[in-house]
Structures are given as structure tokens and as C-alpha cells.
């Protein structure tokens, strides 16, 4: 049912990763993504894949769940793999037909890129699986807070993200209701070509926007009534605290990065 829409894709749990500080998780995820682009050969990449596997096991997120989150990127994955396969001209030619050339180097590159993207997506998925949307936005707000010095409205941005997340399920329900109402009046949403179907969406989008604006208006009143005055002077119920766990994670990440540089240095570069 539509009532079961989850906000984000958080999976409740009590694992090591769940209990980590959101800020540390965000920074580590970014570090992982950068690190994975620093890998120059299969040895260092292998180390990253190993790290990703360990993290998945630590998070206790079921593998099936993780694979499902990879489905939307399957196309991009395939596309880059094919491109790399035929675009790489270096190396020993294995097969040649008209404009297509397949080299051993091409196969390596394609596999390398695919693995790189796969681990990148899985690690970012792990972040959203183990962190509540609230903790995520709070973490982002805290991490970006130095930007306040250059007058970036960090608090407002974080508040906007929170409200957007809060209203996703409400608006999905609303779309469902409007669609039923328009269908009951004989609207045809399923047949016809692309243009016809796009036009049929108009009677759904207009009421949706009208209602969204009305909601925004109500919400602004409600927030004012609860003494909201922006980030100034605001406290938070849930304080973010870094523990031993986070220290361990940071140390492991530093070791991981060092490992990559060593492996890059001692083994031949592929890319």
C-alpha cells in the first residue's frame, strides 16, 4: 500500500555502522569515493572492494536489499562497461570486426570501471541504509556549518531538506488521490503516445501544485506558531557525539588510504 512508503531507505538496526556518528559516516563515505578514484591497479581496487564487503557485513544490511538499490544504475554500469570495452585501443588485439576492436586492456578497463562504480554505489547506499534521514540532514548541517561564515544559509538548507523528506509520502498519497479522482471523471492516463500521456498528466500536476502551495502556507503558519525563527538560538534534542567507535572508523580509513598508496606504488598501474 501507498501508506508504507519509506522515507529514504533507512533500515532500522543496531549495528556498528548504525551507531556511528552521522558526520563521520558522511565524511568516510566521501573519503571512500575519492579513494576509489585514486586506485590505479587491481590490487588497490581489491583492497577497496574488500573494505566495502567488510562494511556491508558490519552493517548487517541483507545483500539482497543492497543489490536492489543497485538496480537503477544497472544501465549506466552496462553502458560504461561496453564503452570501455571497445573504446580502449591499447593492448593486444583479441578480436576485430569493422570499427569494433577488442583488446585485453579494454577488458581490464571495463571490469575495473564496473567494479569501481559498483563499490561506489554500494557504499553510498550503505550510508542511507544505516542513517535516518534526520541524522543525515543534521550531519550535513553540522558539516557545512563553517560555510555560515561566508553567509551560506546552512540551517535553512538543512530545514528545507528535512521538510522535503517529511512531505514526500504526503505528496505521494495526494497524487494517488488526485489520480483516482481524475480517473473517476473519465481521465485516460494509460493509453496513447508519449505526448498524449504527458498531456494527460496536466490535470494531475495542477491540483498537486495548488495543494502543495496550500500546504506550504499552512506549514509556515504552524512553524511560526511553534516559535520557529530560523537557526539562531535553536538547540537540538539529539546531540551528535563522537565515540570510540568513530575514532576506530577514522583510524581504519586512514590505514585504508595508506594501503592504497602503497599498493599503487608497488604494483604496476593499469590506468
Amino acid at each position: 500500500m501507498i501508506r508504507d512508503v519509506a522515507i529514504g531507505q533507512y533500515l532500522p538496526g543496531h549495528s556498528f555502522l548504525h551507531k556511528m556518528d552521522a558526520r563521520v559516516k558522511i565524511v568516510c563515505t566521501l573519503a571512500f569515493i575519492i579513494a576509489i578514484f585514486l586506485c590505479k591497479n587491481f590490487w588497490s581496487l581489491g583492497l577497496m572492494v574488500f573494505a566495502a564487503l567488510v562494511m556491508t557485513l558490519l552493517s548487517r544490511v541483507p545483500f539482497g536489499q543492497l543489490l536492489r538499490s543497485l538496480r537503477p544504475v544497472a544501465f549506466i554500469l552496462l553502458f560504461t562497461a561496453i564503452l570501455n570495452l571497445f573504446y580502449t585501443k591499447a593492448g593486444n588485439v583479441l578480436w576485430h570486426w569493422k570499427i569494433f576492436t577488442l583488446t585485453d586492456r579494454g577488458i581490464y578497463t571495463a571490469v575495473f570501471m564496473a567494479v569501481r562504480i559498483l563499490s561506489l554505489i554500494s557504499v553510498s547506499a550503505l550510508l542511507t541504509f544505516t542513517t535516518t534521514p534526520t541524522a543525515l540532514t543534521d550531519g550535513i548541517e553540522k558539516l557545512l556549518s563553517p560555510l555560515k561564515l561566508v553567509k551560506v544559509p546552512v540551517h535553512s538548507l538543512a530545514m528545507m531538506m528535512t521538510l522535503a523528506l517529511r512531505f514526500i509520502p504526503t505528496l505521494i498519497e495526494e497524487i494517488d488521490r488526485i489520480m483516482s479522482a481524475q480517473k473517476a471523471r473519465g481521465a485516460d492516463l494509460e493509453t496513447g503516445g508519449f505526448i498524449r500521456r504527458a498531456k494527460a498528466l496536466l490535470p494531475i500536476l495542477i491540483p498537486l501544485f495548488v495543494s502543495a502551495f496550500r500546504r506550504a502556507y499552512d506549514l509556515a503558519y504552524a512553524m511560526e506558531c511553534r516559535c520557529y525563527r530560523g537557526g539562531e538560538g535553536r538547540t537540538r534534542m539529539k546531540q551528535m557525539r563522537m565515540g570510540v567507535r568513530d575514532g576506530v572508523a577514522i583510524a581504519l580509513f586512514a590505514a585504508l588510504t595508506a594501503g592504497i598508496f602503497l599498493l599503487n606504488h608497488f604494483f604496476a598501474h593499469l590506468i
Binding site: R166, Y228, R234
Partner: peptide, 15 residues
Amino acid sequence: VATIVEDDVAFGPEN
């Protein structure tokens, strides 16, 4: 305003 009940109740006192 919040995605979790207790966070919403905390909104006023936080302000």
C-alpha cells in the same frame, strides 16, 4: 515538520 514523532514534538522546545 519532522520525519519522526519525537523529533516533531521536540521542534517547539528546540526553537
